[in-house]
Design a protein around this nucleic acid. Structure first.
Lengths: 190, 190
DNA sequence: CGATTCCTTTTACATTTGTTAAAAGCCGCC
DNA sequence: GGCGGCTTTTAACAAATGTAAAAGGAATCG
């Protein structure tokens, strides 16, 4: 079981068997069905999740799509998780049989406090998150929806096909009509 | 000197005298003049900076303004600093007599490696950065330039007055003409 | 003091994007 | 096969934004 978990956690090669002993029983596995709610609006997001298999997405109360994440990725509602405040975001399972691994906020904090190596692991992991978000946000600033759409098609064609176009448009911050225009090629060339 | 530095570093209350002894001589102070370049395009950003006094800004090679930071804040070129890759961004001093404290990447890494408490400090510090960036990016997604401008006026009227409007427009991602329209009130009300 | 320069606003026009509504495609199901 | 229900595209119009160019204001410098 321990080894199973480690496989799905980034940077786990920096951890020793001792560290895993400390974490004994604190990582849990769960399977979600389509439209299951993992984090609800107004509720504190208590867990950090790692996706083993499947697809998950986040949306705002008004329905806007914030992100999709698939197998191999991790997620949480950052603001709610770190500050332990009610989430403004809803996180749902997008596909049947989505398999997740998760750990509770307080257990994670205990690991950091008791183990220098777990603290270093968290530092690397968080660093990666920081860079991911930074890149995402830079793309958002510096590229228009047309560019970002075609880059998505390049980078994640597999995942795109699993998501309705209305959601993709919302994610890109444009209307579905505009996305149709982009796909039709009825779009300025840059 | 040690105490001096601690005053300008967030979460420094979590550190003990021992930790500061480890960091002896690794924090440096420097004073910049208007338009001094702190990080240049193509160069690896080696330091994490804390602003004691003054104003600093970042821009892309095409001139677009990415951010301004003032006294009390910290900054670095995240991608370049963490991944030790050439920076795509230029960071400059915006005001005469800007006073900075900084520490080298390798020294910081050594502190993390040798001290559990420095690692925990970094974790908190980075967490704060992560949340700051997340908030900034959510505003970017969910609010239009008009809203963001008036919120800036609310939140940082002092700093706004120190920055030319052309730069503010660029920061908001709109043309200076549009910003003029917003300021004139010639703008849709929502 | 006048000239130069920089910063900001204004005007006019072209382009892009959202909105609304309707049509076309697709799918599953009775 | 054909009838809903859902997703995607098309069409037509209105609103918002960028671009370019000109003019107003303020600060600087000789």
């Amino acid at each position: 079981m321990k080894m199973n978990v480690a496989q799905h956690i980034p940077f786990s090669e920096q951890l020793h068997p001792d560290d895993w002993a400390l974490a004994e029983g604190q990582f849990q596995q769960l399977v979600g069905s389509r439209e299951d709610i993992l984090v609800n609006q107004g509720q504190v997001c208590q867990r950090l999740y790692f996706i083993q298999e499947g697809l998950v997405y986040a949306q705002r109360p008004d329905g806007q799509i914030l992100w999709y994440e698939a197998e191999g990725e991790s997620f949480t509602e950052l603001d709610s998780f770190y500050r332990q405040t009610p989430s403004q975001t809803i996180i749902k399972v997008a596909e049947a049989d989505t398999r997740l691994i998760c750990i509770h906020h307080k257990d994670l904090e205990a690991l950091y406090a008791h183990s220098h190596r777990w603290a270093l692991w968290a530092l690397r992991f968080q660093q990666r998150e920081l860079l991911r978000i930074t890149h995402y946000y830079e793309a958002l600033r510096n590229k228009d929806a047309t560019q970002r759409y075609w880059e998505l098609v390049e980078a994640r064609p597999d995942i795109l096909q699993r998501i309705p176009l209305g959601h993709i448009a919302s994610y890109l911050g444009i209307s579905q009509v505009s996305l149709s225009r982009i796909r039709a090629g009825t779009q300025k060339k840059q």
